[in-house]
């Protein structure tokens, strides 16, 4: 599903440049549940953004669903994102003046689905994350955990191949963290590839494979107990 070879990424800082990713090799197959761990500033988000086509790499190769990602223009990137990828962010990133239902339906709008059908599909997904009764509430009327579940429903609504989550539990307490992780597990059980960034050991443990990143290189890459148990 995702194949990364000798990937490098630097950010220019004034005249210098900051070398963030220093040759990453990573292969994630369809249906995997992978977490990336590492201290703050180790380049986790950078990696995820490149995988998510929100950013471009400098060197190396990146294949998404077998397709070499190279010289993408914004339009193509947008279409690929809409087709293959679902995003979940630490700070939820819901649009504040849209209801939960409208937020979930938004990716379908960009897919070109008509409003009626869109809202119907969105409601099914809200139901799946247990928030059907909250469909017409604005984000500021929801708790953090609820917001993140809305965000997850939004990431899923286009039936992406990969769900990318950058510290999805970073802003949540432990009980809501568990409910969000359970949700991600369910999704993975349904066969979707899930790629999570976290720096919480307990969260990582609930995934099936942990990749550890330090100073822009992968230091370890092993299956978790959860994976071995299956």
């Amino acid at each position: 599903m995702i194949r990364i070879e000798k990937l490098h990424k630097s950010y220019p800082i004034g005249k210098d440049s900051l070398h963030v990713l220093k040759g990453i090799d990573l292969h994630i197959k369809e249906g995997e549940f992978v977490s990336i761990m590492g201290s703050s500033g180790s380049g986790k988000s950078t990696l995820l953004n490149i995988v998510g086509l929100l950013d471009v790499h400098d060197e190396g190769n990146y294949y998404l669903n077998g397709q070499l990602i190279k010289d993408l223009n914004e339009k193509k990137a947008a279409i690929l994102r809409n087709k293959f990828l679902g995003f979940v962010f630490q700070s939820f990133n819901l649009i504040s003046y849209k209801t939960a239902l409208e937020n979930v339906a938004l990716p379908l709008y960009y897919k070109g689905m008509n409003r009626k059908e869109r809202l119907k599909v969105a409601l099914e997904y809200l139901d799946q994350v247990g928030l059907k009764d909250w469909a017409n509430h604005l984000p500021n009327e929801l708790s953090g955990g609820q917001k993140q579940r809305v965000a997850i429903a939004r990431a899923l609504v286009t039936k992406p191949k990969v769900v990318l989550a950058d510290e999805p539990t970073g802003a949540l307490d432990s009980t809501t963290t568990d409910s969000v992780m359970d949700l991600l597990k369910d999704i993975n059980d349904q066969g979707m590839t899930v790629f999570v960034i976290t720096h919480e050991e307990e969260v990582a443990e609930q995934t099936k494979r942990i990749v550890r990143l330090k100073d822009g290189v992968i230091t370890s890459d092993e299956l978790t107990k959860a994976a071995k148990a299956v």
Binding site: L54, E74, K75, A78, F87, N93, L106
Partner: peptide, 16 residues
């Protein structure tokens, strides 16, 4: 900017 960023992450093309 943030909202626009979200929309683009969700698949909005620059044209839209």
């Amino acid at each position: 900017t943030k909202e626009i960023g979200i929309r683009r992450a969700l698949g909005a093309t620059p044209k839209s």
